[in-house]
């Protein structure tokens, strides 16, 4: 597959899969205001996914639109990082997963907004504005729940320990990243690691949480090798268009 198609799919799939996870919270959140907030973040991410996927489909030139890419690809064809596909768990796990992603996305989208590919730059610029709110919210919850009660702190620390192993992949580059960087389209993911860690340390200090010690960093999502949970997520999301084929909805 063309490197640029592959590259755009990664951003689209990150947004799509995380949006799909978050929308499952709606009507089940701990506070009604959070039903509204989680729906907002999910809506923004679905909106971003549509822009990325539509562009990926155009670049590919095989006649696949956003829905063909969202609903008619198998798990092995998805290019999202493992972090975003991990199950919601409790509100602590959803918060930690969201914070790690939002912080990374704030750095990645800033880079992409300077892309030589104008379409990528425009999508990133729009997404960046939305992401700033997502990060503000998730960072706020990190601190409130980390520095809340004994129970909330222990749930948050456990979630950090569980999710840390999925953060390494965010900063791993491969040939696609290298090609995109050479073309002035993309960025070097390894360069985001230090700024990301620096802000994590500051947030964690305020949240009274510990940064996880060295663990093996899981990887493979960007290349299409996922965790078991993605297959179930897609089975649920794709069931209708796969069951009644050739239909418009």
């Amino acid at each position: 597959m063309n490197a640029r198609v592959e590259y755009v799919l990664r951003f689209g799939d990150n947004a799509l899969v995380l949006a799909q996870r978050l929308c499952a919270w709606v009507a089940h959140a701990p506070i009604m205001e959070e039903d509204v907030a989680l729906a907002n973040v999910s809506l923004d991410l679905f909106g971003q996914a549509r822009l990325w996927l539509a562009y990926a489909g155009e670049l590919e030139g095989a006649g696949r639109d956003e829905d063909a890419l969202a609903f008619h690809r198998g798990a092995g064809e998805f290019r999202n990082v493992l972090l975003v596909e991990r199950p919601n768990g409790d509100f602590a796990e959803t918060t930690v997963r969201g914070y790690f992603y939002d912080l990374w996305a704030s750095l990645a989208l800033a880079e992409l907004s300077r892309s030589k590919d104008e379409r990528i730059a425009a999508i990133a610029e729009k997404a960046r504005k939305e992401n700033a709110y997502h990060l503000r919210r998730s960072e706020d919850w990190m601190i409130r729940l980390g520095d809340g009660t004994e129970e909330s702190r222990s749930r948050m620390q456990r979630a950090v320990n569980d999710f840390w192993r999925y953060t390494g992949e965010l900063f791993l580059g491969d040939e696609v990243d290298a090609t995109m960087r050479e073309q002035g389209v993309g960025f070097d993911p390894t360069a985001l690691r230090e700024p990301w860690l620096e802000r994590v340390r500051a947030t964690f200090a305020a949240a009274t949480l510990d940064v996880s010690s060295d663990v093996w960093m899981q990887r493979g999502g960007k290349q299409g090798v996922h965790t078991e949970s993605l297959g179930y997520l897609l089975a649920e999301m794709q069931v209708l268009p796969r069951t009644i084929s050739g239909a418009a909805w």
Partner: peptide, 29 residues
């Protein structure tokens, strides 16, 4: 929110999903 929320994760297109999610969000509002 629950009966319709039941279909958010399975809405058959991204466009439908956005509308349904926004609608259920309105209900929370």
């Amino acid at each position: 929110m629950l009966p319709e929320g039941n279909w958010i994760t399975r809405a058959p297109s991204l466009h439908r999903k956005l509308i349904l999610l926004a609608k259920v969000q309105d209900e929370a509002g």
